[in-house]
Amino acid sequence: MDMKRRKFFQLLGIGGGTVALSKAGKAAANNTKYGIQNTKVAMGVLVDTTKCVGCRSCEAACNEANHLPKPKKPIMDDDALFDKHRDTSPTAFTVVNRYTPNGKEITRKQQCMHCVEPACSSACIIRAMEKQPEGAVTYRSDLCIGCRYCMVACPFDVPKFEYDKAVPLVKKCQFCFSRQKEGKQPACVEACPMGALKFGPREELLEEARTRIYTNPKDYVHQIYGEKEAGGTSWMYIAAVPFEQLGLPGGLTKKAYPELTLGAMGVVPMVMILWPALLMGLHQFSKQRDTENSRLESVAPRKIIAPRKDSHD
């Protein structure tokens, strides 16, 4: 009996230890403080703008995969589209734009960056925007109340709103999350004929990007856009020119965006606990002052000051 008991406790101890270990292991795998990002499984895409030729196959594949309206003209014939800068919209989750820094023509695909610590998700009142452990930032259309705070918060202006609908939703690239679940690549990556888009675990893509820059140092700016921007993004870019010249926002903080409101949110429980205590004290103080005054007055009654005359007369 005693042996059994001891063994039982040992087992319990081991069990507990294992739980603790596995928790520690999980914590180690999480490379971020506030998110659920697991580097082993978190996928990303490396966009090599030096390989992009602007064929816009990715746009066509995206529209098809997401059941979005087809462009009016066949996508690949319409070079005139490049004359005007286009933005993503509720019916176009990715677009390719042409930039001409120093006369060179460079095309760049844009879409949701799928931040490691997404601003949109931390801002969302109902967490309709969710960071998946697999990397994608997905959207729950059944929860969204349409407050558009995600749009204010997103440093890349990715979420787009259906202003023209009476029952509107937010729309954005979801990293083909359902395709990924089926073991497929995102539609745009699969469609790219130039190998400009590489899908894989984010950590491996970072290594890949560094290798490309080291082996061809003259072809690239020595920076990976998305490695640290806004705390890091799942989609990352390498390019021959500074990224600002390709329409990517510069000057972004290296902090994860949720950190920006962390302090303000931390004050909430403090105020809830300290304010009542402090204010009750003040109330007691003023109450006691009143009773003291009236006691003094009853001891030595003063002439009651006549009320002031109404100034409106």
Binding site: C124, R127, L143, C144, C147
Partner: peptide
């Protein structure tokens, strides 16, 4: 101003957005 104001009570029924300033 809200897109789907009838979903406002969701914030209380499904209190998911606890990191959100707007939730507070």
């Amino acid at each position: 101003d809200l897109g789907q104001p009838w979903r406002m009570p969701y914030m209380m029924i499904f209190p998911r957005g606890v990191t959100s300033v707007l939730f507070e």
